[in-house]
Design a protein around this nucleic acid. Sequence first.
DNA 1: AGTAGGACCTGGTGGC
DNA 2: TGCCACCAGGTCCTAC
Length: 274
Amino acid sequence: MPELPEVETIVRELRPRLVGARVTGCRILRADIVGYPGARSFAARLRGSVVTGIKRRGKYLIFELSQGKTLVVHLRLSGALVFQSRRTALPRFARLVIYLSHGRLVFEEPRVLGRVYLLMRGEEPSVLAGLRRLSPEPLTAAFDRAYFLKTVKKRRTAIKQVLLSQDLCAGVGNIYSDEALFRAGIRPRRRSCQLSAAEAARLLEALKEVLKEGIAYRGTSVSDYKRTDGTSGAFQHRLNVYGREGEPCRRCGTAIAMVKVGSRRARYCPLCQR
DNA sequence: AGTAGGACCTGGTGGC
DNA sequence: TGCCACCAGGTCCTAC
């Protein structure tokens, strides 16, 4: 699942390869991965563009193109971006191929939930409202104790749900929310507003910590996520709770438990987390 | 405004 | 070995 650290890894890997390159053309293998505008316009808008910059916002990848155009990509659950030479065979689940002078960028998406968008200067289609609603970036100074405490205190829902809300904690998903709660010693079902100020501060630090480590280890490869050269990240070896239900807690040996929080699944250690 | 729950989507998995 | 129901889960949508 590409979350903040995975998307950040992809951005950092693509930046040196793509910035300055010209798009010579593209091939859309599944029209429904184009979220805006239609597939035909998307291709027409993209062709001939030069990539001038690449950045991340939440879980969105944002490619700045010449003439004020912007290519936005969201990988959702199973999307991946792989940079390869033209001689390589196309991967099985290739949905979109962007051709560049020195290779091609392949958008793989087995579940076809991921989307690409091509915006003209100043364009803000309603299908991208989620991008504008995002909270401050968790790894910036704006995402501080004051912001986090206020946010946590305002919600009556489970703290796990708060961490997963993109308008509150941009870029956080199921993996890093579970891991942050473990490090902070807080159960996922705890009512958000009932966390103490000390717990909120601890959770904020834990969240920043796991996100930074996730980036340092180039992301977590547990299902579909892979780096832009097709290799795996390494943070899956450092997970304490995610995907470890039934296995012994690395800190105390207690079996890791799993519960449903809303429609999501959360893993936690019944002894280390209260 | 905050909250909850279902829909979307399809390959992989587990049960029989 | 084959079939099928079910699961994964980020985001959008609707309803309360």
